[in-house]
Computed example of a mutant assay.
Amino acid sequence: MRIPRIYQPQSLALHQLTELDEEAANHVGRVLRMEAGQQLELFNSDGNNYPAIIESSSKKHVSVKITEVHVNDSESPLDIHLGQVISRGDRMEFTIQKSVELGVNKITPLTSERCGVKLNQERFEKKRQQWQKIAIAACEQSGRSIVPEVAPLQSLEQWASETSSAMKLNLHPKAPYSIKTLPTPENGVRLLIGPEGGLSAQEIEVCNQYQFQETILGPRVLRTETAALTAITALQCQFGDLA
């Protein structure tokens, strides 16, 4: 039986007695119905795994004792910052979940001219908190111990204009170069994925202005969520840790 992995945003240490936060305690005590003596594994985004034994468990309160500390080496050597124009429905959630499983280090939701989603700041913040929880759950499932940040909303131009030494990539169906022909990124990758309707001519020009390289994935036009995951997979296969 697989040992459940639980995210705890607090300092953790060997032999420490830890009270799980309310959300985690509800999941362990009420959903999984775990009892005293059973094992689980904690992580807090410091890159370590913390195997633990449940000391006491109820539907609202769970305390555990950390029995070991292990460095988790599941992070890819390739740092990827995904700039994703917000997509409709559950597509954005799907993109966040799967990109975290594939090893993305940071996700910035973006607005653009053809973005089909309109959110005010209050609604977006609620969405961002929900997306961050999805990122945490993806780490619990995939074995990662460093949780990628889902950053505050930015416009495409704001994000594109940020100073960065990373390789900047923008997918384009008529680009002359593929990911296989790119040089090895020395300082990670900033990957821009546009909306379902694609980037406007002005936005493509903005990307060119800020030294984004146009890159092609193949002969077929992919949906925005498919493009993001395909590009991340190709980058990880070429420069990261996917075989």
Rank of each mutant, 00 (worst) to 15 (best):
P185S: 02
N49W: 14
E22S: 13
S74A: 15
D241W: 06
E196P: 10
I204N: 15
S58D: 13
S145V: 14
M1A: 09
D21M: 13
V28N: 05
G29C: 10
K65M: 13
I136M: 06
L42T: 11
S155D: 01
S200V: 00
Y177I: 13
S99Q: 14
S57W: 09
K60C: 13
A25V: 06
N170L: 15
V221L: 15
P109C: 05
R190W: 03
I96H: 02
S11C: 05
K65H: 04
T224N: 00
R5C: 12
M167W: 04
E205T: 07
P195G: 01
K126N: 11
L102G: 03
I232S: 04
R5Y: 08
A175C: 09
A25W: 09
T111L: 08
Q8T: 14
Y210R: 05
K174D: 12
K126F: 14
C139K: 14
R33M: 07
L32E: 13
E75D: 12
S145T: 15
E23I: 01
R123F: 08
T111Y: 10
E214R: 03
R123E: 07
L191V: 08
R91I: 09
Q154R: 13
H81L: 02
E41M: 04
P4D: 07
Q202C: 01
V28Y: 10
T108A: 10
F124C: 03
A231F: 02
P4Y: 11
G194T: 03
V100M: 05
L222V: 13
A166T: 11
Q129G: 05
I53N: 04
V189K: 02
L182S: 04
R128F: 15
I232T: 06
L102R: 01
E214K: 02
Q132F: 09
H61C: 15
L20N: 05
L20D: 02
F239C: 00
H81T: 09
A138I: 14
Q154T: 09
S164T: 13
P148Q: 04
M34Y: 09
P173K: 01
P148R: 05
G83V: 12
P152N: 14
Q211N: 13
P152H: 15
R5G: 03
T67C: 11
L229D: 07
E125Y: 13
L40D: 03
V69Y: 08
P51W: 06
Q39L: 09
G143L: 12
T184Y: 15
S164I: 01
A151N: 13
E35D: 08
S87D: 07
S58Q: 06
T226A: 05
A24Y: 12
K168M: 02
I193F: 04
D241F: 05
T233Q: 04
I66V: 14
S57T: 03
